[in-house]
């Protein structure tokens, strides 16, 4: 994938440049319905290739089902459905992001494709307010890595996503 490769290189360059000043947070970028999202790596436990997912009848609609990860049950959420995006079939690039959801429980988020890691400085993150109007609570900001033209990351706050699912 040459495009991804190029992105990776420029990302590294940006990271190197930015390494000179201030603290940085690492974000994992992934694709969902054509848009690029990112979550803090600190909130991630693992990236999985999707195993067979067992459907749980009566579960809230974003819940795809449960899987077993090394003997532990993990609830898998379709992030597209959760963010009310159009649904799409899974393919070989589909991944599950394993995240800690508090209380020792892990949850899986189904995403289209996983990209690279970005190290963002505080200045490279815009408040969600720039989009104007009322923003969804799960959007933590917009990442604009310096020196990479056109790269826009929608930074997600996983907590409301995970907890919102819990309450149905």
């Amino acid at each position: 994938m040459p495009a991804a490769h190029a992105r990776g290189r420029s990302g590294r360059r940006a990271a190197r440049r930015a390494g000179e000043s201030g603290t940085r947070t690492e974000y994992l970028a992934f694709v969902l319905g054509g848009e690029t999202y990112a979550v803090p790596i600190a909130q991630l436990a693992e990236i999985l290739k999707p195993p067979p997912i067992t459907d749980v009848p009566r579960a809230p609609s974003p819940v795809l089902g449960v899987i077993s990860v090394r003997g532990k049950l993990v609830t898998v959420i379709d992030l597209r459905r959760r963010l009310r995006l159009a649904e799409a079939p899974t393919d070989r690039r589909t991944r599950i992001l394993l995240v800690e959801s508090g209380g020792g429980e892990q949850m899986g988020l189904l995403v289209d494709e996983v990209h690279q890691v970005w190290r963002l400085a505080h200045e490279e993150i815009e408040a969600p307010g720039v989009l104007g109007g009322e923003q969804a609570v799960h959007i933590a900001g917009i990442g604009r890595p310096a020196g990479v033209d056109g790269a826009v990351l929608i930074l997600l706050d996983l907590r409301p996503i995970v907890e919102g699912t819990r309450d149905g």
Partner: peptide, 16 residues
Amino acid sequence: KPLGKSLKSVRGFAGA
């Protein structure tokens, strides 16, 4: 094994 907290509201299953 118990279903996670996220599925607490689902009735009819003792676990998996």
